[in-house]
Design a protein around this nucleic acid. Structure first.
Lengths: 187, 187
DNA sequence: ACCTGAACACCGTTCAAGT
DNA sequence: ACCTGAACACCGTTCAAGT
């Protein structure tokens, strides 16, 4: 039974879900599909491109913000949805960070943030800054949490008593407040 | 001539400076020191610990904020200094991100940010959120820029026309504005 | 105190050849 | 269209032994 590109992508997500990024090697992925590693290169030109596809698939769970909602809620909801999407797959924040930097990502979550910020009447520069601040924050924050979780799983660290949800809400609130404040100045 | 732990650290920084993280392997580091890879494990227990030492050394260039300066300037200056310190060594933002998450970092830059925010009279939770938002932002932002730069060096991407300095200033301004706004609410 | 030698168990990627 | 087989050039880490 021959595999499609989609089969390869789903097998990669399954490994990420179950074992994390350290175990997502081309050799291990091939074994999961019961093919030889070289066969993967028929579906994807290299590992980097495969990981970008994984990143896009993870972020595809983030919905377009509700057009009727206040623009600050759109910013909040999109950022919260990004975090929720990343938390579904172990280490996916790190995958997304690399893919984002590589420029191979096609997800439009960044555009959702820029559009929502513009709805607040801020300048284009501020809208871009809002996207940067929010996406870097949520990705960086989730990398930190997921790396901790992976280390606790491997018993190399004891469980920390940090309240990640509270820390996230506070940081998000702080950034949204900053954007709203810049918006108010323009009125 | 026997090597010290410091010699190993400096050789690692030299490789980072000249070639970047992809070339910082234990084998290559050993070759640079003219010893066998196994000898490195006398100085550091593993690569992760060595990279944490590299991260600390990079962040050691960030000065304690001037006590006389306004607290918002202390926040800005520390974040700007973190970015400047990271930009001295290729891919060091990624090294710091991992080391930060691993909990092996001992640098006190995070404390500088919390202390500065507290000077603004905000609650402890907001001060912690300020540290998280600012450090995640500057690390995430610099990872993105340094990954781009590395790819341009390898000619896998054309130079982008993004103005990273302007984007950074806008994002930083936005976060600091948010903190100040929460501080003002308390007055 | 610091290092070598040898080994173990892995990587990503290429490319001619097979069906 | 999709895959195998074989190879190339690498990894991090361990551990007994050397000086």
């Amino acid at each position: 039974m021959a595999n499609t590109q989609r089969d390869v992508l789903e097998a990669a997500l399954a490994i990420l879900d179950e074992f994390g990024l350290a175990d997502l090697s081309m050799r291990r992925l091939a074994t999961a599909l019961d093919i030889r590693p070289s066969a993967l290169y028929w579906h994807y030109p290299n590992k980097q491109t495969l990981l970008a596809a994984v990143a896009d698939e993870v972020l595809a769970a983030v919905p377009e913000p509700a057009v009727g909602a206040p623009w600050t809620d759109q910013l909040r909801d999109t950022t919260v949805a990004m975090r929720a999407a990343m938390r579904r797959y172990k280490d996916s924040a790190e995958v997304i960070s690399s893919a984002y930097a590589s420029g191979l990502i096609t997800s439009s979550v960044g555009d959702y943030l820029v559009t929502a910020a513009r709805a607040g009447g801020v300048t284009d520069d501020t809208a871009e800054a809002a996207r940067t601040a929010l996406s870097q924050f949520v990705i960086g924050f989730t990398i930190e949490q997921q790396t901790r979780e992976q280390m606790e799983r491997l018993k190399v660290t004891e469980p920390s008593d940090r309240d990640f949800d509270a820390e996230f809400d506070a940081g998000l609130g702080l950034i949204v407040t900053g954007i709203r404040s810049l918006s108010d100045q323009l009125v």
